[in-house]
């Protein structure tokens, strides 16, 4: 099984991504001794898990040749919704989580319906959804961030990122479990087979009796749910929500998926690759921060890396 896996170009890409992550950790250690200490590695992975969660949704939709640009404000809305609907009380945690994830699912549903049934291009549909969510969030919060509205995440939610189980933060266990579930969903279920089929050729899949529209809608719903989940984890981590906190996650989630070797036009790739991509990206950010690289410099570097990867992977595609 694994021998076969590592013969293909996509498997090699995943391997490259893990090697790159490892190399970056070592470079970090050289640049700033202590980078490889358990505490430091732990915090890098914790931050990577936020990117990784968003990237899970992004992987799903990119696998069918789509994209989800509504990530930033779904994530942000989720963070604010969780803080405000729970009022920081443990007793309201369950309903707050449900409302928040439900909101993510609902935006995803709208995206999916627009794309699959109304034929709106994914870029346009999800960009519009992002705009609408931004407007709704700003309007309903009255432009107030929760830093000023004094709503905190309930201690139970905060515990997600601040408690440990067997010496590893709970959030990492959660990410691990999700990685397992997403990988199984993609590789061992009918739903996963249909996803790859649609991403390879939607017309041929339709003519083979695959329910292309339903599958597409579910994939976008999953993406919305994962964005919302990432929002919850971020509030858990920081305790409070802030306006604009979702902004970096659009670029980073797409970058993680690309670095992880998922074919940007769909049909090929694995979430396990996106996980490596997320770790790679966050490690790189940490190394650049350790080098005191200003933000503009970091942004240029991300852009160049994505371009180079796409160029390189594009070349490889033509050869095979």
């Amino acid at each position: 099984m694994f021998a076969r896996l590592f013969h293909s170009a996509e498997a090699r890409r995943i391997l490259y991504a893990y090697i790159a992550a490892l190399a970056l950790f070592i470079i970090g250690q050289i640049v700033r001794p202590g980078f490889l200490s358990p505490a430091s590695v732990e915090s890098v992975l914790l931050i990577a898990s936020f990117v990784g969660l968003v990237a899970a949704g992004q992987t799903f939709v990119i696998l069918i040749g789509g994209i989800d640009l509504s990530v930033p404000w779904v994530l942000n809305a989720a963070a604010i919704l969780l803080a405000t609907s729970s009022l920081g009380e443990n007793a309201r945690t369950a309903q707050a989580l449900l409302i928040t994830l439900g909101m993510g699912a609902l935006v995803g549903l709208a995206n999916g319906v627009g794309i699959a049934f109304l034929g709106v291009p994914a870029v346009v549909m999800t960009l519009a959804a992002n705009g609408i969510m931004e407007g709704l969030t700003l309007g309903l919060s009255g432009g107030m961030t929760c830093e000023s509205c004094a709503s905190y995440a309930p201690p139970l939610v905060q515990a997600l990122t601040h408690s440990k189980f067997l010496g590893i933060p709970s959030a990492l266990w959660l990410w691990f479990a999700i990685t397992l579930l997403v990988s199984i969903a993609l590789s061992a279920t009918r739903f996963g087979r249909h996803t790859y089929a649609i991403g390879t050729n939607a017309r041929a899949s339709f003519l083979a009796g695959v329910n292309v529209t339903a599958t597409t809608v579910i994939l976008y719903m999953l993406s919305g749910i994962f964005s919302a989940l990432a929002g919850i984890m971020l509030v858990s981590f920081g305790g409070q929500a802030a306006l604009g906190m979702g902004d970096p996650y659009l670029f980073q989630s797409i970058a993680a998926v690309v670095i992880g070797g998922v074919y940007i036009l769909g049909g090929r790739g694995h979430y396990i690759g996106s996980v490596a991509g997320a770790i790679c990206l966050v490690t790189l950010i940490s190394v650049l921060l350790a080098l005191n690289m200003p933000e503009y410099g970091r942004n240029i570097i991300y852009g160049v890396i994505i371009l180079l990867l796409l160029l390189f992977y594009g070349r490889e595609e033509e050869e095979s």
């Binding site: 009918r190 087979r193 089929a197 083979a208």
Partner: peptide
């Protein structure tokens, strides 16, 4: 319109009968 060229022979063969082949969604 017919085949999913990059996918395996197996995946192409069983695409339409995955429902019968799955239990609880697992193939």
């Amino acid at each position: 319109e017919g085949l999913l060229l990059p996918l395996s022979v197996r995946n192409n063969l069983t695409l339409t009968i995955l429902r019968q082949l799955s239990r609880f969604g697992l193939v």
